[in-house]
Structure formats: structure tokens, C-alpha cells
């Protein structure tokens, strides 16, 4: 999630491998369906599209590029590595995901 400490600089948006981050007020898309924005004030992360970068990178790329430290895990939505990995596979049906390693899952650090 992105907290209200966000300054709306947009640095995080292009880093997301799942296109889960949207600018404030911009509708989000999943499987061709459009949905209302989750925030009109700050950049936001769509939980249904976020894999905490599992399957892609060693850590969450939004958090890695944010010096404000406002991209943080949502305490109301704690998910397992397996749940996140399955989501990554569903979001990228054409991609081959090798077995998870410390380079592709923050759970394995």
C-alpha cells in the first residue's frame, strides 16, 4: 500500500512489474475490465495485482525507489509467498517462472 506520506512524484509507477501502481484518479485495469480508482489523492497499489515483486525481484521495487518510505506492506492484507507467486503466474500467463530464489522473492532473504 502507499501511505499518505506520498508526495505523488510517480517514481514507483514504472518500476512495478505487474502494472499494479496507478496515479491518483486513474482507473485501474485487470483482464480488460476497468475499475474505479482506489485513491484520488495519492498514487495507489491495486492489491489484486500486487505480488510484492515475488517471481520478479529480490524486494519490492516500489519501496526500493521511494526515499519517502511510503510504499509499505498492508498490515490488513498479509499474504503468503505461495499466494503471491500464484498471482504472479496468473498475471503473466505467457511467462515461464523458474523456482523462487532469494533473487526473486523477499521471503527467501
Amino acid at each position: 500500500m502507499i501511505t499518505e506520506e506520498c508526495i505523488n512524484c510517480g517514481a514507483c509507477e514504472p518500476e512495478c512489474p505487474n502494472i499494479a501502481i496507478y496515479a491518483p484518479g486513474v482507473p485501474w485495469e485487470l483482464n480488460g475490465e476497468m475499475h474505479d480508482p482506489l485513491s484520488n489523492d495519492f498514487y495507489y497499489i491495486v492489491p489484486e495485482k500486487c505480488t510484492e515483486c515475488v517471481g520478479h525481484f529480490e524486494r519490492e521495487q516500489c519501496a526500493a525507489v521511494c526515499p519517502v518510505d511510503c510504499c509499505v506492506p498492508d498490515p490488513q492484507r498479509v499474504e503468503t509467498e505461495e499466494q503471491l507467486f500464484q498471482r504472479a503466474k496468473a498475471l503473466h500467463p505467457g511467462k515461464e517462472f523458474p523456482e523462487l530464489t532469494p533473487e526473486t522473492s523477499h521471503f527467501r532473504k
Binding site: T3, E4, E5, C6, P67, V68, D69
Partner: peptide, 21 residues
């Protein structure tokens, strides 16, 4: 950066963001 963002939030009356930054 965080102190600077703190002042940005303060001026925009986002006191939670300011205090945290």
C-alpha cells in the same frame, strides 16, 4: 529528502505526513 517532504506536507496541511517524515 524526508525533512523536505515533511515541510511540503506541513504547508499542505497534511500533518500526519509531515510528522512522520
Amino acid at each position: 529528502i524526508q525533512v523536505s517532504v515533511g515541510f511540503y506536507h506541513f504547508i499542505n496541511s497534511n500533518y500526519k505526513g509531515a510528522a512522520s517524515q
